[in-house]
Design a protein around this nucleic acid. Sequence first.
DNA 1: CGGCAATGATAAACCGGTCTAGTGAACGGA
DNA 2: TCCGTTCACTAGACCGGTTTATCATTGCCG
Lengths: 339, 339
Amino acid sequence: MQRPTIADIARQAGVSKGAVSFALNGRPGVSEATRARILRVAEEINWRPHSAARALGGARADAVGLVIARPARTLGVEPFFARLLSGLQAEFSSQSIALHLMIVEDTRAEIEIYRSWVSERRVDGLMLIDLKVRDPRIAVVEQLKIPAVVVGGPGRHGRVSSVWADDRAAMLSAVEYLAVLGHTRIAHVSGLPEFQHTQRRSRALRDAATRLTLPRARSLHTDFSDAQGAAATRKLLAGAGRPTAIIYDSDLMAVAGLGVALEMGVAVPHDLSIISFDDSVLAQLTHPSLTALSRDTYRFGVQAAQAMMAVLADPTKTKNHKTETPRLIARESTSPTRS
Amino acid sequence: MQRPTIADIARQAGVSKGAVSFALNGRPGVSEATRARILRVAEEINWRPHSAARALGGARADAVGLVIARPARTLGVEPFFARLLSGLQAEFSSQSIALHLMIVEDTRAEIEIYRSWVSERRVDGLMLIDLKVRDPRIAVVEQLKIPAVVVGGPGRHGRVSSVWADDRAAMLSAVEYLAVLGHTRIAHVSGLPEFQHTQRRSRALRDAATRLTLPRARSLHTDFSDAQGAAATRKLLAGAGRPTAIIYDSDLMAVAGLGVALEMGVAVPHDLSIISFDDSVLAQLTHPSLTALSRDTYRFGVQAAQAMMAVLADPTKTKNHKTETPRLIARESTSPTRS
DNA sequence: CGGCAATGATAAACCGGTCTAGTGAACGGA
DNA sequence: TCCGTTCACTAGACCGGTTTATCATTGCCG
């Protein structure tokens, strides 16, 4: 027999299709004895539900969609995504929810995918990442009426749930740490300026600079690539009154910056302290190892997945879930100023 | 109207459901005039196919499955997967094929997922990675009669297509390069011994050692983690008659090994040459930068995806597709021996 | 002009589940 | 004893497509 169906179960157990459906889904309508018999038969003939048939009846797709809008080719170098993905997956797979993944070029394409996935009922919910200032996706998911979770909020995202970390507090802790070490000329090599998390960090630096009266505190924007991270570093170190400390928005850029410093004969941490806003083996394997704002990105993914499952369970309840604030881990790349 | 269906199109265009289906799928059975009218109506009311309904009729799921059987937590650090994934995605998305992704703990769980995805008709094909010696998955996919592509073959995998690179030739080129530089004591820090690619590399080293009469050529197995890579390095460098060159199976382990060497006062490349079997920014950002066997992993992913689409188009045609052999890129971590 | 094939279209079955309305039997209370 | 309720279960509609069998019309050929 090719691929047993509930009709086969029904025949063998001597009941109707409906009864089988009730039994298999744990709903009332059958006696315990019958239920047990049906389950036994199902087990025996190795029956599996046909997801399409289920979905057709309006049931869940048991899949969540994630679209990443960055050039596919550059994605591989960013450890953050892989770790986030791992965390999401670990949690989702515990509920047998698969991840529908797609990498596209830009937000327009991303929105197109959302529309088709939703109207084709491929996914039950969407995870939005890299939220931008005035992000058009928010309006789209609200219009599509599909459960969504913003990873890396919160921002202006109406009634959509979000999971976020306090970038502001993290940045402040890094700046204060540097200030205590005697640094007054602090620079920030950031990511894309249109991202909300980039803006939060840059603003936090500005505010801290005002409060602690640090002159020359500045943010240089990049596209997160190691090349632009290196270029920004070169620019900072070449100028007069160069910074004594640089905070990088990713470990990849921090490592690239470290390379530039060595190349230019700027000793780390003696002449320049370096802090990475993201931690990974990468930051730990360099010499000197990098002081970093560390958080458990895997766990962040797990929490994002949990938030999604909460929204799936009750779409009316939206919630902003704040996760652990990245903590500063002091390593070898920071030291007091020499003066 | 909530979610237009082909019945709506049929009504508005004044034809039957069947005619609409023919028109939308570009099959014969309707005149050009009618077809055009139907397509126009479909466009107008913004109709999208309901993937579940399609699948129920036995059609394609337009998704390909990929299960990675490694501890989710450690996955994020391996740049290889992210790049492979990017390449796969880029190619698949050009055909609107989504990737169904799941990360599990072991091969048993992986096989379970295969069974359920196939019987639930969630995917049209499966990508198998990290092929092991006598891998049980081969028998499973053959039994399930689902199109599959082995990424990183070829091995004993019957009539299943594969996409692979010539690890043996790559390893030989690395060993020969080192031999020319005067190295005779060459070690290899490899990955998990049960993987076929690990075995091919280890065997290539042994063969080269015999041919070039290199004593003490040996492979040390690890689990691919930076910790075990470091431990293996420490063991190698602590012993008497330590190697003058080490080849690492991944850039992550190579970087970890580099750190251990620096820590132990072994100068790279002066006292020790290092080659990484995998290239990425990681290898380029260290100091000294790492000589590496480089290949375009993104492209590898693209080719794997193409192989999958070929099998989907005609499941009877299986093929072993050999991709570019990793080429040695000399950087700063290798030099002639001092003697 | 008759027979036959090709064309364009329709109606209905079908895929494998879910779910609702309905049925018969057992049970309980007055 | 009789009615109402609950329980266990059945029959069949339904979801939104695809596909097959069927049919009418037209055109072509001998």
